[in-house]
Amino acid sequence: MCLAIPGKLFEIFDENGLKMGTVDVNGAKTRACLEYVPDIQIGQYTIIHAGFALKIIDEEEAAESLKLWQELIESGAFQPDDDLSSADSL
């Protein structure tokens, strides 16, 4: 239901009394309301939905789950050299 995309905050400003910011999404820059992430710092990633920052992305948690998944790859059935795009390997 809810398209929310990660972006990196690089500017904070006030507009009509609201805390706003400019967020870089892979080079595309968009405005977002920061009222719901008052502690956000420039350089942090947040997820944007309907022009609002919903949550600061927790970098430690992200790294943690990627580490767990990396272990899965290392012990997994598929290795980096396998041809993954082929239907035969399904």
């Binding site: 999404v25 892979n26 595309a28 968009t30 944007i48």
Partner: peptide, 9 residues
């Protein structure tokens, strides 16, 4: 990259 970013958003 920026086109992709805008498309995702």
């Amino acid at each position: 990259p920026d086109v992709r970013g805008a498309c995702e958003l």
